[in-house]
Design a protein around this nucleic acid. Structure first.
Length: 523
RNA sequence: GCCCCCAUAGUCUAGCGGCCCAGGACGUCACCCUUUCAAGGUGAAGAUCGCGGGUUCGAAUCCCGCUGGGGGUACCA
């Protein structure tokens, strides 16, 4: 072994089975990029591995080693979002497991011990450089056209100086002593081999001065201790992957397989952030997206099955997902396509009962129904179910339910705008006559017989000398308060005779008042 | 600046040397259906496969360069 030392990460999985982990930081809401990674983890362990007859375990680990960025309650929110999305895990902070604890802040003794062993083996060293010196060095190196970074000042610190500093209680960090020569090969299951010159690598901090580990140490130690076989992570880790390879080598451990999933870009390019709309799972949930639609959309962002199939249920994905078809190129988040998936699931995949149950929380938020109306035994349930059946094809998100279903659930409508009661190419007086005639006709029909109602009202249009469209539109606005609605007779049936009569009468009144003080006719 | 990743229509993608003067989907447009709006159906426009060199009888597919986009460059993950 000369200066051509080479290290390679593992490329094959051990026969014992597959163990993957999703390791978010509790710094805020779960990001769509994170869930997509978690989804790939889950599908690999629960789907692909199982299909190959291997045991597959999905582990949730909390990486809370940055005490400054920790957000109280974030762990609970992460867990809730993951569960809403439809993932479950075999081991984690909430469910325990053989490698507990699964929260890194509770494992600091392990990281410190491993850092010490690295120091003892000559693979790491204590660095006493204060932050201001680090900054100065960075600036100087940059000005000199060198890569910014640490100048390894403390790497050559004599043992007696180290001992003296330690005795004086000087704050310090532990840095990795990166090999100065040779090259390191990172083997990525998605991208193939990536070769780095060790000379370009930095002596990264492993243990911070507050005693907590950095990602680099904690990640390597835990993945090894928890017997992780495959690491799925974002592409932002590619640049430090060679250091991780070197760390495994320094510890004498075998390297898990690496998969750097493709980045999710914002519509304009760059990172996806708040200004591009929702990014956190809770937001998608609040905006009325279905978890299965979001999953379907997200899995296709960076993975494909045959390039033609678009709709995948969770079961389909468990049966068809393969890491071999994960793409290396970044993809742009497209809200329009997500919306299409959501609409498709509501319109064609959800049952009416399912939709009714899911729409209740949104209706309850605006006070239209009781929050308990999702239960079939609840008195309001039947009404919600009828509304769901009627609006199913028109809903893009659950959040639209209050707006689109309100006229079916409320007793009275908001005051009419007389202008909307007068259909295009219709005289206000004719519209008023039509409403008055409709009110009378309502006494003759049974709304439960939609065909008969339609026949009667078509006849009425003829008697009035109006086109069916003109009459029907006037009735539609009177009954629903809007110019767009589900098919008129099914709608009237659900609204019921009493409310229909009251609304048509109220609409006629409103129009009468405005005819007295003429308004411009609808064109 | 330095290191690294990526590159097929506005967007997500299929394609892994000949079946491709490039297939599917979202979006867009038109028509059909129709009492409105949707849903559905049919069809259209949209890609010189980023550019330039190679290799080959033959390249979107392999190699090199360039360009472009992106990521990293913290005692954050």
């Amino acid at each position: 072994m000369t200066d051509q030392q080479t290290a390679t990460s593992a490329t094959t999985e051990p026969s014992g089975g597959v163990r993957v982990r999703f390791a978010p930081s509790p710094t805020g809401a779960l990001h769509v990029g994170g869930v997509r990674t978690a989804l790939f983890d889950w599908l690999f362990a629960r789907g692909e591995a199982k299909r190959q007859g291997l045991d597959g375990a999905f582990v949730l680990r909390i990486e809370d080693t940055d005490r400054n960025r920790y957000v109280p309650g974030a762990v609970e929110s992460l867990v809730a979002s993951l569960r809403w999305f439809g993932l479950d895990w075999d081991e984690g902070p909430d469910v325990g497991g053989p490698f507990a604890p699964y929260t890194q802040s509770e494992r600091t003794d392990r990281y410190r011990a491993h850092a010490e062993s690295l120091i003892a083996g000559g693979h790491a060293y204590r660095c006493f450089c204060p932050p201001d010196r680090l900054e100065r060095v960075r600036a100087e190196r940059q000005a000199a056209g060198l890569p910014p970074g640490y100048d390894r000042h403390c790497r050559a610190l004599p043992a007696e100086d180290v001992a003296a500093n330690l005795a004086a209680g000087m704050p310090h960090v532990v840095r990795f002593a990166t090999p100065r020569q040779g090259e390191t090969i990172v083997h990525d299951l998605i991208r193939g081999e990536i070769t780095y010159q060790n000379a370009t690598l930095e002596d990264l901090v492993l243990l911070k001065s507050d005693g907590y580990p950095t990602y680099h140490l904690a990640n390597v130690v835990d993945d090894h201790l928890m017997a992780i076989t495959h690491i799925f992570r974002g592409p932002e880790w590619i640049p430090t992957a060679p250091v991780h390879v070197l760390l495994y080598q320094a510890f004498g451990w075998s390297m898990p397989a690496l998969l750097h999933v493709p980045l999710i870009l914002a519509p304009g390019g760059g990172k996806l952030s708040k200004r591009h709309g929702a990014t956190g799972l809770e937001e998608f949930q609040a905006q009325g997206y279905l978890p299965e639609a979001l999953m379907n959309y997200l899995v296709l962002l960076g993975w494909s099955y045959d390039g033609t199939t678009e709709i995948f249920s969770r079961a389909d994905l468990l049966e068809k997902f393969s890491i071999r078809r994960i793409s290396a190129s970044p993809g742009t988040f497209d809200h329009d396509k997500l919306r299409w998936f959501n609409q498709h699931y509501i319109n064609h995949i959800l049952s009416v009962d399912d939709l009714a149950a899911r729409v209740v929380p949104f209706l309850a938020d605006t006070g239209l129904v009781d929050a308990a109306a999702a239960a079939p035994s609840h008195p309001q349930h039947a009404q919600v179910r009828e509304a769901a059946a009627l609006l199913k094809d028109r809903l893009e998100t659950l959040a639209q339910a209050p707006d689109l279903m309100g006229f079916l659930l409320a007793d009275a409508l908001a005051p009419y705008d007389p202008l909307t009661l007068v259909p295009k190419k219709t005289e206000p007086a004719a519209a008023l006559r039509a409403l008055e005639a409709t009110l009378a006709a309502l006494d003759e029909v049974d709304l439960a017989d939609e065909a008969a109602t339609e026949a009667r009202l078509r006849g009425l249009a003829e008697e009035l000398g109006l086109k069916t469209g003109q009459l029907f539109m006037a009735i539609r606005v009177a009954v629903t308060g809007r110019t767009q609605s589900p098919p008129l007779f099914a709608t009237m049936h659900v609204v019921g005779a009493d409310r229909c009569r009251a609304r048509v009468a109220a609409a006629a009144d409103a129009l009468r008042r405005s005819v007295a003080t003429p308004v411009p006719a609808g064109d």
